[in-house]
Simulated assay, not measured.
Amino acid sequence: MGAPCGSTARRRQAQREAALRTQIAADLHDDVGTLLSQISLQSSLLQEGVADADGQRRQLGQISEASRSAVRQLNDVVWSLDAHNDTLPQLLDRLRDYAYEVLAPSGLHIKFEVPETLPTTHLSLALRRNLYLIYKETLHNVLKHAAGASWLRVRLSLESSPSRLLLEINNEVVPVLAAHPTAVPYQRRSGHGLRNITQRAVAVGGTAECGPQADGSFRVRVQFPL
């Protein structure tokens, strides 16, 4: 009786991963397709030569930004689908690479707190993808709304009873506010991003706590069963 049950579980897991890959392909088509349409439109306007020099510079800037966004999204999809990236060390490498890529130009310092040795625990495609998207959403919130931030702290840890993965991200804003009283702390503009974070955590059996803190910082804490 054990073998058929195991076979059924593997078949269901394969079906779930196939459905997720289909969803990723659809998202890629929508997101990158939109960016490519923007690039095509701005390129056509440049060829027509209607805009003055300042307008052309703005159009070139928009083309450049759309191109970078498209490349980032393509890289994200390739990374998420590559089976070689299904362990915690590989996930940590990706989190670090993305943080330095998007935060360094803003002047934010990044501090990672992780165990000295991470086990090569297997992470499902769904868990890996949702955790990474939560991470990206959080960094986007910090960049957009936490004008007084000077440091971003990322803590990745494991708990054994029960077995679960914890990710905590918060910006440390107090030192900047003390030095610059006019600096603006986190200002919540919309709840869509926070709802997305919670929904993505719940989708893989996890939980999320996120939002502005009393000291003006912004924190996200998510945990996932392993």
Rank of each mutant, 00 (worst) to 15 (best):
41 L>A: 14
30 D>T: 12
93 D>N: 08
38 Q>N: 15
104 A>V: 15
65 E>T: 08
51 A>L: 10
26 A>E: 14
103 L>Y: 07
86 D>I: 00
45 L>D: 06
89 P>L: 06
63 I>K: 00
22 T>G: 12
54 D>G: 01
24 I>W: 04
108 L>E: 08
74 L>K: 10
62 Q>P: 00
98 Y>V: 15
37 S>C: 03
86 D>T: 12
106 S>E: 15
47 Q>K: 14
39 I>Y: 06
20 L>K: 05
52 D>P: 10
8 T>S: 07
31 D>Q: 15
21 R>P: 00
49 G>H: 01
92 L>F: 02
68 R>F: 04
38 Q>T: 12
97 D>G: 06
73 Q>R: 13
92 L>C: 06
44 S>Y: 09
45 L>V: 06
70 A>G: 10
12 R>F: 04
64 S>L: 06
48 E>R: 13
15 Q>M: 11
72 R>H: 14
42 Q>I: 04
95 L>G: 05
66 A>R: 00
88 L>F: 12
96 R>G: 04
27 D>Y: 03
69 S>H: 03
18 A>D: 13
58 R>T: 02
90 Q>W: 02
63 I>A: 00
53 A>P: 02
108 L>M: 10
49 G>Q: 02
83 A>V: 09
108 L>P: 08
85 N>T: 02
26 A>K: 08
39 I>S: 03
81 L>H: 02
8 T>E: 15
23 Q>A: 14
45 L>Q: 07
71 V>E: 14
22 T>D: 12
26 A>P: 02
98 Y>S: 11
48 E>A: 11
38 Q>G: 05
48 E>H: 09
61 G>K: 07
58 R>V: 03
105 P>Y: 11
11 R>C: 01
42 Q>L: 10
100 Y>F: 15
100 Y>P: 06
78 V>S: 08
43 S>A: 13
46 L>H: 02
9 A>I: 15
13 Q>M: 09
52 D>L: 07
62 Q>V: 01
85 N>V: 02
102 V>A: 01
29 H>L: 10
14 A>K: 04
92 L>D: 04
